[in-house]
Write a protein that binds this DNA or RNA. Structure first.
Lengths: 333, 333
DNA sequence: ATGAAAGCGCTAACAC
DNA sequence: GTGTTAGCGCTTTCAT
């Protein structure tokens, strides 16, 4: 049961060779005679030998083939799509993914960074949830590359992959304005992340550029989950002068919006940031972008740093597309 | 940049103490004077010391605080919900989750098992994708506990957590029969997994028990993705004598069904196995079960084995509930 | 309360 | 081709 796994020297002993010869044989290094190699491999098989990569990694430089990803809960399709992309790209390079859930809590996030660094991960990918000024110190911590996803820490020059928040928001705003809407509600998440802030700023700028101040009474921020979004939107629609259109700044909030609009006779127009499964079925107009690609690009940047790439921090921007599916084309009433 | 991280002996040297004293101080062991402890901690801080858990783990027994989860793509909400539950439970015990995507390919799965065992994970959780006879050998491989999720390898007694497939299928069948349906199409995934097989068997048994052979022409298996499901269901509905109801055996297939039924005047009834986001919005009747809980239970079983629990393999069954939301209550035409 | 020596399982460096 | 020695960074004896 709890027998310790066999070691290389046990294999060597059984094959009647030295430790190093066994090592060479099993690692496919040159300078092992065919017969010897054969015997070693047999011995290993019989013993059920398996390399201890802890020991190997310690010896070969104190680093493991692990890459850490710290994000919010994988139950959120945004994070799981990102994780999927990260994993796919890492696997191409023989790296393994360690996922850790910060619950979007800055303190927990920080301790996870520590834990993963202790594990000697080769790189760390982070979707910062909380206040992220802490990364100033941690950055390039003894050569462990950091890549930030979706929400680069404010004022920190670091490798990062983000969504074209300004552009996407622009598209949404233009689309609704073109549809004749003026009273447009903006329902946004917590403003502490740079991505949410960028979406709010982008929207505000677009409205200003269009000379439309009518939206201002309908700005709602700090809406962090679907249930709150549903309630908030219900309240908005109960106003004397309700908005004729809604723009929700992420998938969770869009879900809440769909619940709030369910069964309504003449629902307001709706555009949501982030595409989502079944958006085609329910006919929701969205600002789509490839979240899996976002993960993949982040993993790619990390891999290049691991490979020794030096040079200034790079930023990859994932483009957005407006996909019209009906909800965003409803006219103002 | 690529300076090697400081080691414990560097900390010790700087604090003017021995290696062991530094170790004691940093690990909060007794028998260190306050002043000494203080000095060591300062030295560590100044150097930016961080424990190398590779080295520690090697020394303390050759095992890491990592637990591996091998499943299909996290982009599938089923797997990501499971992963979320696993991670949450592991975190309570200070364990980290390494996720690996098998793409539901048996060969890749096998190599991932090897890779994770080499990493000396403390336990391995597997959602077997392919033919899983291989686990006979691997099971309890030198004390590394295995837990199987959703699809226990046929004929292998091992810790596992599964969904009440028979019960859930029963509920679906009974619900549709009670609604007056006879020509019920069963759209199922690849039969090579035990869970799919159990759902098909359960459905067949329920139809036999009800004395209804009319469903037989409408059995479709081997449908592995949403697009194929959409096409398959389109074909079914184009038959001279189309089914009046559909039962899809997982979330992917239900998604395909929703696409196939979109815009239809008089769509057939639909019940899907697995709950999914927005099912309430689109009004789909499902056989729901808690996938996150499935992950959590699996992690719990693994943790108990890690803690030394011996005894016969255990099986945890996650119950199912039928949630009527409209689509399953449409009468036969 | 502190330290010296040994060793976890492996590979790098250098013999032979 | 093969073996010997040393050592990765840490913790575990066992002294002192």
């Amino acid at each position: 049961m709890h027998t310790r796994p066999p070691t290389l020297s046990q294999v060597a002993a059984r094959a009647g060779v030295s430790l190093k010869t066994a090592s060479r044989a099993l690692n496919g290094e040159p300078y092992v005679s065919g017969a010897t190699g054969q015997r070693v491999r047999e011995a290993a098989d019989e013993l059920g030998y398996r390399l201890n990569s802890l020991a190997r990694d310690l010896r070969t430089g104190g680093t493991s083939p692990l890459v850490g990803l710290i994000s919010g809960d994988l139950a959120n399709p945004f994070y799981s799509a990102v994780a999927s992309g990260v994993e796919r790209e890492l696997r191409r390079h023989g790296l393994l993914l360690v996922t850790a859930n910060s619950d979007e809590d800055g303190q927990l996030e920080r301790s996870l960074v520590e834990a993963l660094l202790e594990r000697r991960v080769r790189a760390l990918l982070v979707v910062p949830g909380g206040d992220s000024r802490e990364y100033q110190r941690v950055r390039d911590d003894h050569g462990v590359p950091f890549v930030f996803l979706d929400r680069p820490p404010a004022g920190l020059a670091a490798d990062s992959v983000l969504i074209d928040n300004a552009g996407g928001t622009q598209q949404a705003a233009a689309h609704l304005l073109a549809g004749g809407h003026r009273r447009i509600a903006l329902v946004a998440d917590l403003v502490r992340t740079t991505s949410q802030q960028a979406r709010i700023d982008g929207f505000t700028a677009a409205m200003e550029a269009a000379g439309n101040p009518d939206w201002e009474p309908y700005l709602r921020t700090g809406v962090h989950d679907a249930a709150t979004a549903e309630r908030t939107i219900g309240d908005l629609l109960a106003l004397d002068d309700p908005p004729t259109a809604l723009f929700t700044t992420n998938n969770r909030l869009t879900t809440g919006a769909l619940r709030a609009l369910r069964g309504l006779d003449r629902p307001p127009a709706l555009v949501g940031f982030d595409d989502f499964e079944l958006a085609d079925v329910v006919g929701t107009t969205v600002i789509a972008h490839d979240m899996t690609e976002l993960g993949r690009q982040a993993a790619r940047l990390a891999h290049e740093r691991i490979g020794g790439h030096t040079g200034p921090p790079r930023t990859v921007v994932i483009p957005t597309t407006l996909i019209a599916r009906g909800s965003g084309e409803r006219p103002p009433r």
